[in-house]
Structures are given as C-alpha cells and as structure tokens.
C-alpha cells in the first residue's frame, strides 16, 4: 500500500532540497523515516516546520538510540506530526556525542533534549538549560547507554 499522498510530496520536497544530505529514506508499514546528515539537522527541521506542504507544526518526541559498536554511536530521532495535513514523519541522524539543539524550532525540544541528555549523555549544542531532568543532579553515568549496567549500581 502506498504511503499517503501528502507524505509523498514531503519526501519529494526533501529530496529536492537536501539531495545528498539525505542518507536514506525508508518506508515501513506506512511510516516514513528519513535519515539526514547531522550537518543539516536544524535546517531540515526548520524546513519541515515552515514549508507549507510539510507543515509539521508539532514535535511529538525527540529521543535517541545507542549502537555502542558504531563510531558515531547514537541515533538521534525525532517524531513530527502535522496537525493540518494529518501526516507524521520520523527523522534520524547519527552522532558521536554532539548535535545542535532544536530548541529554536520547537520550544518543546527543551525538555525532550534534557531527557535525552540525562539518559544518553548526548550534548545538545546551544541548548539554553542542559541539566538533568529525571535523575538526581549528582548521578554519574547515563543509564540508557548500552554499556551502563542494566541493573545499575546497587546501593
């Protein structure tokens, strides 16, 4: 089953605009995933928000995934929703540790990035207030990294 038409337009527009900066475009069960190079991370999101055919005006989630054996071990992932067009998209990129913040595009990225920093230790460059949000402030380590012991350090 083909993906919905408005999303096809979005993917086409992204490919036209970003070209080589798109590493891959996946489609699985009507869900579209676009993987960008980290250099265009903010620019791509701003385009997705402000372009009238994309119109992703809501950030659902920003999170990460850890692949410890890779050189750039973290995938940073955002889920976007367009309330007007009723379509969703998933954006990925990968990084070793640093990635620019999306706070300038969506204000909700503030806490989502703090959570991602808290649990994965990814530094969001330019974030206004990058502190731990869930764990205690003196916590050491980042629990959702794959090399953190799954049971933690017992007390």
């Amino acid at each position: 089953m083909p993906i919905q038409e408005s999303l096809q337009v979005v993917v086409k527009k992204l490919q036209d605009k970003f070209g080589d900066s798109i590493l891959s475009t996946q489609e699985f069960r009507d869900e579209v995933t676009v993987r960008f190079k980290p250099e265009v991370w903010v620019e791509a999101h701003r385009f997705l928000k402000e372009d009238e055919d994309c119109a992703f005006n809501m950030m659902i989630d920003e999170t990460a995934a850890d692949y410890p054996l890779r050189t750039e071990r973290f995938d940073v992932i955002t889920h976007l929703l367009s309330l007007g067009k009723a379509h969703r998209i998933r954006i990925k990129t990968q990084t070793a540790e640093h990635i620019p913040t999306l706070y300038s595009v969506w204000k909700t990225a503030n806490w989502l990035e703090r959570e991602t920093y808290d649990l994965f230790g990814i530094i969001f460059d330019g974030h206004p207030d990058l502190r731990r949000i869930l764990l205690t402030e003196d916590w050491e380590g980042f629990p959702l990294r794959k090399d953190y012991p799954i049971e933690g350090y017992d007390i």
Binding site: P68, L69, T136, D138, W139, E140, Y153, I155
Partner: peptide
C-alpha cells in the same frame, strides 16, 4: 550519605573502552 551511584566506584571510560 545515602548511597547514590556516585558513592560507589564506577567503571571509568577506560574500563568501558576496554570492555568494548
């Protein structure tokens, strides 16, 4: 003095790297 992870010797980055 409630023990938090910080009060226990944690593996360092070198330990992680060696493990990997």
């Amino acid at each position: 003095e409630i023990l938090r992870p910080g009060h226990i010797k944690l593996p360092t980055a070198q330990d992680y790297a060696a493990h990997l």
